[in-house]
Every structure is written in C-alpha cells, then in structure tokens.
Write a protein that binds this DNA or RNA. Sequence first.
DNA 1: AAATTATTGGTCAGAATTGACTATTCAAGA
DNA 2: TCTTGAATAGTCAATTCTGACCAATAATTT
Lengths: 166, 166
Amino acid sequence: MERELLLLGLLRRQKMHGYELHEFIEQYMRTCIDLKKSTAYYLLDKLAQKGYVSQSVEQSGNRPPRHVYHITPTGEERFQELLRQNLASHIPVKFGDLVGLAFLDDIPAEEAIPLLQKRREAMARSLETAVTVPPHPGSLQLVIQHQTVHLETEIAWLDSVINSLE
Amino acid sequence: MERELLLLGLLRRQKMHGYELHEFIEQYMRTCIDLKKSTAYYLLDKLAQKGYVSQSVEQSGNRPPRHVYHITPTGEERFQELLRQNLASHIPVKFGDLVGLAFLDDIPAEEAIPLLQKRREAMARSLETAVTVPPHPGSLQLVIQHQTVHLETEIAWLDSVINSLE
DNA sequence: AAATTATTGGTCAGAATTGACTATTCAAGA
DNA sequence: TCTTGAATAGTCAATTCTGACCAATAATTT
C-alpha cells in the first residue's frame, strides 16, 4: 500500500515514465524502500487499471516511444486518502538480521564476535552512503536523515551485544 | 533467506509440525519477523525438497494425522552456514511508514500534527506489547529487547518531527 | 446432550515480486 | 569509423507469498 502512495506522490509532482520513477526512488529513497524496476511497472499497470493514473505515449528525439504516466483526479483523491492513512498509522518493520541474533547462543562466542564485527562494518558502510545521498528539498530530507539516526542506534546496540559477549 | 534460517534453527531444537512452528514465531518473534501460516508451509515444503528437513506423519489421540518436520544432517550443515552468513551481514530494513513522511509537506501542518500523534500512539502500543512478550531463555531474549530499543528511538525521532512542525 | 464457538492443522487459487533477458541509443576510445 | 561498454526502457516466465477457505476436534454454553 505504501508503494502505491509513493508512486502517486511522485507522479503528482510531475508526470514520469516507469524508468524515471524507478531511478528517482533508487537515488533518494533506496534507504527506506526497495522497489524493483519490474515491480514498479507492475504497480503502475495496476494503478492505471484502477484509474488512478493514465498513460500516454511520448517520443523524445528518435528514441523508441515511452509510456508516460500522469496522475488523474481520482488518483489525486486516492493519494490524499493514502497519505493521511499512512501518517496516522505505524507499520512495524521487519528486521531480517535479527533472526541470526536469535540463535547467537548456538555458536561459541569466540566465533560469533568476529562475525558480528563484520556486520558492524557493513552497517558503518551503509551509514556512510546514507550520508552521501544527494540532498533534496522538502520533507524527503526527513527520510534521509531518519536513516542516519536509525543506523546510528542500530550500531550502538550491536556494540552493546558484542561487548556482552566479550 | 532469513526465514529458512529461522525454520531450520527452530527445528534444530526440536521437531515440530507446521502449525506449531507458526505459533511459536507468532508468540516470540512477531516483533521482528512476519511469517504467515501458508508461507511457513510453503517454505517447509521447499526445505524438504532440498533435503534439509524430513517429514513424518504422526497421530496424537484420535486427531487427524499431522506432518512433523525434523532437521536432517544436511539441514544442520545448512543452518550453520546460514547462521554465520546472517551474523556477518547487514540486511537493510524497509520502513514503510517513512513514505508518508516523505510527503509531509504536501498537507498543512495543522492537519499533519494530529495524524502523527495518532501514529505516535500506535507506536506506543506496539512498545507496550513488545514489553509483554513472554520472556524466553537464551538469545531470543536479545531480539525482544532489541525491539524495545528500536521503538523507543523511533518514538523519540517522531517526537522531534512533530515538534519541528509546531 | 444439543448447539455454538474456538482451536487445531492445513490447502490452494490468485496476487505480488523478482531475476534474467531483450533491444535500442549514446559515448568514448582505438 | 568501428567496436565496446554503459545508460535507457521495458517485458516476461518463474518464484514467492498471502488471504480466504475447509474440515476435524475440543470446549463452552444452554
């Protein structure tokens, strides 16, 4: 549902074609949303079927024609509704990497510590790239900033786990 | 991949049937993993095909027979491998509720504030239920504790967002 | 003890998602 | 200018996931 909101919200600012949408999301939102190209097209198609977006074919230069998506009035309504719904609710996040921690006591601490240190490094790298996401006007910036706050606390927590193993 | 690890890790401690596995995950891990019943069966089937678990049919009382899953030696190896892999890597989390925040400046602050306060309440409720997850021996406890740390920082961050709107 | 409801245990068709692939254009170097 | 590689734009078969349903037993009510 939040992906629908995302696509509508972006199309609302300007019409775009599928590839462009996907690029934008990769660039600015890869930290919080992971939307594959093929999924983007699939969702756009569904939105079109529901009448929230309309398609048109455009030609730029002598490149092959592209499908450009515009938001419709119904789509705008839908956006307003989804946005309010999203802002008012909490969607629990799934921590895939916690599964390993749940079995931490199944391997000796001497072996676990270096593994967790590798994890720590991977997180630190994520944090660095989060900082280098190009700045963007408006509240999108919030999302980028959130990621750094999140990663910083995650790293601190992991440190405490590693510490308790030593 | 982490779901595979999870199932193998649980079956390693004791053989179980699908329903039991799902129940356990619901009870103790709903905060970090969301594994539907039908998905559990699907994955168990796949694990069986790959030879990581074996099935047997058991009858208790005069209830209908149940499919009980045991881990195999190959499955044990696989578990060891997946566990190390998981511990050493960082799996970025997806924050579905950040999408709304990205469009925060598309509605007036007077309207956004009460919505975000509703969200805050939902998060506080999550935090409360996280605290009431029955305690469990071993490192599973870590996972439960992580959730409270996570939610606390998320709530604090949201507060700062609400504050900046006022 | 009959009727109703909850729990257990599971299946399956359909929806969502993805990786792998295609094909065109553009840029840059040999 | 020819070739190689990257960027653009998208499709599609196969995989993965889920909601909705089914059916049996146990518990609870009347």
